[in-house]
Design a protein around this nucleic acid. Structure first.
Length: 437
RNA sequence: CGGGGCGUAGCUCAGCCUGGUAGAGCGCUGCUUUCGGGAAGCAGAGGCCGGAGGUUCGAAUCCUCUCGCCCCGACCA
């Protein structure tokens, strides 16, 4: 992409309304624009990152047997009356009356709808287990939206739902999702800690939150130091590995959200216990028959008897992850994207747009990289070098390829790593080879 | 919802206390000189001072109401 033809409205100064670093940087880097409290438009650069994260989430879901679908954002109140949550959910649910005076709502989650689809469709135990998910916009009318995308009202979420014949099978589904989540966060360059959590309005008695450690996190967590520092969370377990044994190993360590933590009963001695702040980026639940019972989701079992299915639900805050990654990875100059989610891999900077030799070298680099399938943002604007450096650091692409007249005279270009700041002066060919072209 | 703060140019803000026809820096447009870490000069464009009412000869400025945004708290897959 040529920057001169792109849509990247960067800002030099911090917008007054943005207090937290991820919010500031996303606005300044031209990724988002706020439309209302807690409601954001995604500009092209931000949208690319959002999609990259969604793709990684998707691929780990598929790898562990979840099947993608898409449910609507607007739901009928009647469904929610069946589960009893229409009244229980409270003002956080955005309620809508349509022209026929029907009560509708903008879905904050989809347990009821997926249960309705399941009960109308699946009749036999032979069709179990099933794990269905979608990536879709949710709306929760938070009392106080804040911190930009960290607590928005409209947000993109991956929510998945498992259906099993009994507890043992449901527990395996829960474990698979725990592993899929740990893999997902690792691929995003994050360390997420699974902590025992309260189940809240979802219900059930087994639940883990996945917390990214960050000073600016909204929640507090307590965990055994060995869990965080032992490397166990980054093992990249596959679907054919012994998932259950691994989950047992991970969950044997003490790790609890603050509402689940009781200092007096904590089994970990104080010197091994870490109290940290975290950003909740995922939450998984096993809630048994809470919804299937209320909504009559049954299949015929092997003995010909009706069996109420066991369910779980599994959420990842996809849009929140964009902010969480920035909170975890930035410096004074801007964002530092992990390569897996960077909107472009390479920022190609022409240090002297209009200079024939520089233009030709840049054009060659741009074409070679593009043809090799490397995402490159070519800053071909007629701007001064300093302005280009500042913008490129701000938007945080992993690699910067600088081509200017001085270097070309000496036969070199400069390749800079955004994260380490390391620069090498090499031939254009060598730089392109390093970038995968 | 309780407490606090803020709405003036695209962005950051001054002006408000003490009413008198709207300002700066950056950004934007054109030209010139420049050009390797946010250049300089000249010339421009751009604002119903969040909205409504009121007081006044006169309101960005004072008063009332209202809307929006941010922060703390309560809340929170």
């Amino acid at each position: 992409m040529r920057l001169s033809a792109y849509f990247l409205p960067t800002m030099k100064e911090n917008p007054a309304e943005a207090q937290v670093v991820s919010h500031r940087l996303m606005l300044r880097a031209g990724m988002i624009r706020q439309q209302s409290a807690g409601i954001y438009a995604w500009l092209p650069l931000g949208f690319r990152v959002l999609n990259k994260i969604a793709d990684i989430v998707r691929s780990e879901q598929e790898r562990f047997g979840a099947i993608e679908m898409l449910m609507p954002t607007i739901q009928s109140a009647d469904l929610w009356r069946e589960s009893g949550r229409y009244d229980a959910y409270g003002p956080e649910m955005l309620r809508i009356i349509d022209r026929h005076e029907r009560e509708m709502l903008f879905g904050p989650t989809n347990e009821e709808m997926i249960t309705d689809i399941f009960r109308n469709t699946v009749k036999s135990y032979k069709d179990l287990p099933k794990m269905l998910y979608h990536i879709q916009w949710k709306f929760r009318d938070e009392i106080r939206p804040r911190f930009g995308l960290m607590r928005g009202r409209e947000f993109l979420m991956k929510d998945g739902y498992s259906f099993d014949l009994d507890y043992e099978s449901a527990r395996k589904a829960y474990n698979r999702m725990m592993v899929a989540y740990l893999n997902t966060f690792a691929r995003l360059g994050l360390t997420a800690v699974p902590v025992r959590a309260d189940t809240g309005p979802i219900g059930g008695n087994l639940s883990h939150e996945f917390q990214i450690l960050a000073e600016t996190g909204e929640s507090e967590l307590f965990a055994d130091r060995d869990l965080l520092e032992g490397g166990i969370l980054k093992r990249n377990i596959g679907p054919t590995d012994d998932v259950d044994a691994y989950v047992d190993e991970v969950t044997a360590f003490y790790a609890a959200a603050d509402e689940m933590h009781e200092a007096a009963n904590c089994p970990v001695p104080a010197e091994k216990l870490m109290a940290r702040r975290g950003i909740e980026v995922g939450h998984i639940f096993y809630f048994g028959t809470k919804y299937s019972e209320a909504m009559g989701a049954q299949v015929i079992g092997p003995g010909g008897e009706p069996v109420t299915v066991h369910m779980g639900s599994y959420g990842v805050g996809v849009s929140r992850l964009v902010a969480a990654i920035i909170e975890a990875s930035h410096d004074d100059n801007g964002i530092i994207w992990p390569e897996s989610v960077a909107p472009f891999k390479v920022g190609l900077i022409s240090l002297r747009a209009g200079d024939a030799e520089v233009d030709a070298a840049c054009q060659k680099a741009y074409e070679t990289l593009t043809r090799a399938g490397v995402d490159v943002l070519y800053d071909d604007r007629d701007e001064r070098a300093g302005a280009k450096f500042a913008d490129m650091d701000l938007i945080g692409l992993p690699w910067q390829l600088l081509i200017g007249p001085k270097g070309l005279k000496a036969g070199v270009v400069e390749l800079k790593n955004r994260k380490t700041g390391e620069r090498q002066e090499v031939s254009l060919e060598s730089a392109l080879a390093q970038l995968g072209a």
